[in-house]
Write a protein that binds this DNA or RNA. Structure first.
Lengths: 236, 236
DNA sequence: GCAAACCCTCAAGCCCGGGTAGAGCCTGGC
DNA sequence: GCCAGGCTCTACCCGGGCTTGAGGGTTTGC
């Protein structure tokens, strides 16, 4: 295969094309299987007005991950679904290489900014969803209208939101996350604010590190409390 | 000779006894399943002259491994058989990765209840902190005052809170987590409520699974948003 | 503007892994 | 010598993971 096909497939692919591509790496893909996986909520490609599925680069990547987990790790779809929902695609690589534990860096890694078209292409989320997310301040692109640019975190957020949308969670429902994140940030700022503002580089570094630790602990706490709430929900 | 009856600690067990023992740890063992595994060549216990199976300590261990690989790593028997045949050298690897996967379960795992004294002992958190957490509804012991009992989740919550306390986060600060967890639970209930309430067992099961997936996705989203907030905090 | 290639949904069915059920008979420990 | 607990074997079940086919719409290239 010549590589110029790569260059052209920035754009979305039809299901047949996807099957052909992945067929090189996995011998048990088929169009019907891909559809089946979608049925099982592992995937949700955009559609053309006529109803054809359109797979973004990202969708293809995701599909590749699914097939790999299935073939090499023997995971049942049910579990793969959860792993994906938990956004472990990145973790996967990290865990493999370093065995890092929830290494959550607050440090900014300057990443390429995306236009909205690229974002749509990349995540497979409909532009309408992205607009909604902006309205609620959940993604925050920079730049003037019509020239907005989205960062890497925005991309991931959109991805997560698309995941939730699959289950019927609307954009406006996500407001609650916005406010709770704000509050949490405020809390952490209050606790660590002084040292963060410090002009002493060493103090500042320490503060950032603490921030990460604290964020992790908070995450844990929230998770636990949620779990308990949910148990009550299912329990009775 | 009769000497083997003397060495009581390495006495061989009958299939019923084995099933009972492993039943503590794995809820899906049964006599027939153990026989089935033998049929699949995963095991070959000694036999009495009369044909009864006799399980050595070692057999039991092996069985435990099999069940663990099945439950926690989702490996098919075919693969487990190979792994076992390939020797125990790589067992460590598996044991390590085992902890990583265990999906987040909302399912209640009946766990021992603790008194407040045990809780203090266990977590090293001061009783005052625990009291504070109760005031804000962050831990929710059962039972009458003076006789309160704390569950496993409570224990973990206290632990996390103690961690935060180390950094100067007070109990009352944690209220925000309480409310945000509540809201999130409400959101999920709204989305999945109908199917959760269903009397149809299958629908319910599915709903619980979706709940777990959704919770994971929400966790991811919250995490991402917080990270972005924190970047802003440190960035400028 | 049309054919050929491609894709859509939905319902039904298939296959396989991983067991369970039960009939009929045997063992071994008190 | 009683009987709880085992034994084998065959048949059956169930859920996960697709495939097939009918009936029909969409795209694309010429």
């Amino acid at each position: 295969m010549s590589t110029q096909t790569q260059a052209s497939d920035r754009k979305a692919l039809t299901i047949g094309a996807v099957a052909k591509i992945l067929g090189q790496e996995f011998d048990d893909v088929s169009i019907s299987k891909i559809r089946y996986l979608e049925d099982q909520k592992l995937l949700s490609p955009r559609r053309t007005p006529g109803g054809y599925r359109l797979y973004s680069q990202n969708d293809v990547e995701r599909l590749r991950t699914i097939l790999r987990l299935q073939r090499d790790e023997f995971l049942p779809l049910r579990v793969i679904r959860q792993e994906l929902a938990a956004g472990s695609e990145r973790d996967e690589l990290k865990a493999r290489s370093a065995g890092a534990r929830r290494a959550v860096s607050v440090e900014t890694a300057a990443s390429p900014k995306l236009t909205i078209d690229e974002l749509v292409d990349d995540t497979g989320a409909p532009a309408s969803l992205i607009g909604e997310l902006e309205d609620y301040g959940i993604v925050q692109p920079e730049g003037p209208m019509g020239q907005k640019l989205y960062g890497d975190t925005d991309r991931e957020i959109v991805q997560a939101a698309a995941e939730l949308a699959r289950y019927g969670v609307q954009g406006r429902n996500l407001k609650v996350f916005r406010t709770s994140a704000d509050r949490e940030a405020a809390l952490l700022e209050q606790v660590l604010g002084p040292s963060l503002a410090s002009s002493n580089q060493v103090t500042r570094r320490d503060a950032i590190e603490n921030l990460e630790t604290l964020a992790a602990a908070c995450g844990n706490l929230k998770h636990l409390m949620l779990i308990r709430d949910l148990r009550r929900l299912t329990g009775e």
